[in-house]
Amino acid sequence: MLIAATLAVLAALILAVIRAVRGPTVFDRVLAGNSVGTLAILLLAVLGFLDGRPEWLDIGITYGLLNIISTLAVLKFFRHGDLAYDVGEDAK
């Protein structure tokens, strides 16, 4: 059962990577990257249970927090070309 779940997550990972390679826009790739992050967390959780060592969940939580920050950071960078963008700059 857990092995089936692992295989399912791996299959989904492959599909997400296909989307990341095909693109066509940068936002499709960001979306695929976000999905890969989600699936990696799920893979970590399932593998931890399969291995009998649920401590892997801690890594999963860290990965989840990083995944969101990185998605937002990449989006911000492609929108403004600058990570230190300040909304007030537009007003000038």
Binding site: L2, A5, A8, T25, L31, L39
Partner: peptide, 22 residues
């Protein structure tokens, strides 16, 4: 629950490849 969850994960990933636009 684990099996149904896996099925929905794969369905979502299939949609990610099949859908026509972002």
């Amino acid at each position: 629950m684990i099996i149904t969850g896996s099925i929905f994960i794969v369905i979502g990933a299939i949609g990610l490849v099949r859908m026509p636009d972002l």
